[in-house]
């Protein structure tokens, strides 16, 4: 029979092991974020007609950092459907991340895929082909005034924005909450102003 002191010690030890375990697991480096597995740039001829149309609009921004590690891609595709675009003005920027820190800090320079689309009212689609089977997160914004930056006003977004797996305009998702696997992803743009 255990004494109460034993029980309390056991519970305390358990709490420490569980928390330390979770913390330790979060420190485990992700192999593909550090040295391998960057998604290849999508300069390969896209398969679908929709993607062909968009290929002319799409421009690879972070291409320089991507050619470095030629990993054998498993040919998975993320098809992004963007809804709720309110105007034809400006560009829609779609960034694909595989790194939690880059996504959480909105560091578009470290995105592994990047699309610049001419905005069209309503909905649009774009593809990120030749990806690995793993978790990605997507961040989108609508640069209506064409100044190539995401404008804020009084601490709130002044331009339309969206993220994978966000349910409302006020969802501020971290990478692990926004992560999606290759397949179809629907993202709604939100405009606060």
């Amino acid at each position: 029979m255990s004494t109460n002191k034993q029980r309390i010690n056991a519970v305390a030890a358990t709490a420490v092991i569980v928390l330390a375990g979770g913390w330790f697991a979060s420190l485990v480096p992700s192999a593909d974020a550090s040295d391998t597995g960057y998604a290849k740039p999508d300069n390969i001829a896209p398969a679908s007609p929709v993607a062909k149309l968009q290929k002319t609009l799409a421009e690879q921004v972070g291409a320089s950092q991507m050619g470095k590690h030629a990993n054998v891609p498993s040919g998975e595709t993320i098809k992004v459907s963007i809804d709720g675009i309110r105007s034809n003005r400006g560009k829609i920027y779609v960034a694909l991340f595989d790194d939690a820190k880059a996504f959480n800090s909105h560091d578009y320079g470290r995105a592994v895929g990047f699309k610049e689309l001419q905005a069209r009212t309503g909905s649009m689609e774009t593809n990120f082909p030749d990806l690995d089977i793993k978790a990605y997160a997507i961040s989108i914004f609508h640069d209506e005034n064409g100044n190539q930056s995401f404008d804020m006003l009084d601490g709130y977004p002044a331009e339309g924005y969206g993220m994978s797996r966000a349910n409302s305009a006020y969802d501020e998702l971290k990478f692990h909450q926004a992560r999606v696997k290759p397949g179809s992803v629907d993202i709604r743009l939100h405009y606060l102003q």
Partner: peptide, 14 residues
């Protein structure tokens, strides 16, 4: 979620 944990064999073992 408290931590951002990747899915790989090491984290599955933990």
């Amino acid at each position: 979620a408290l931590f951002d944990i990747d899915t790989n064999l090491a984290t599955i073992a933990i």
